[in-house]
Amino acid sequence: MRFMRSSPLLTAAGPVLFGGAFLAPLIAQSLEAASIPAPFGLEPLVFGLAVGISLGFVAALRGRWV
């Protein structure tokens, strides 16, 4: 069997999905656990989604998280 490389679109979508699906609730729940209000009066989850998806998008562009 020949090894199939994943498509560039899937590779790029992965970090954005991870940012929105995992990092966003993680950021939101971390803020709530530390009793830190989200900036600009945002709901923690909205803030988490904004940060998580942005981080994922930047990671997708760079090809790496760190």
């Binding site: 991870f18 699906a21 995992f22 609730p25 993680l26 939101a28 729940q29 971390s30 656990a33």
Partner: peptide, 22 residues
């Protein structure tokens, strides 16, 4: 793995998922 992480995260256990596995 990702399905478990995401399910845990959206059911209010993101910190546990992050600190026990991720």
């Amino acid at each position: 793995y990702y399905a478990i992480l995401v399910t845990l995260a959206w059911s209010g256990h993101a910190i546990e998922a992050a600190l026990i596995w991720w």
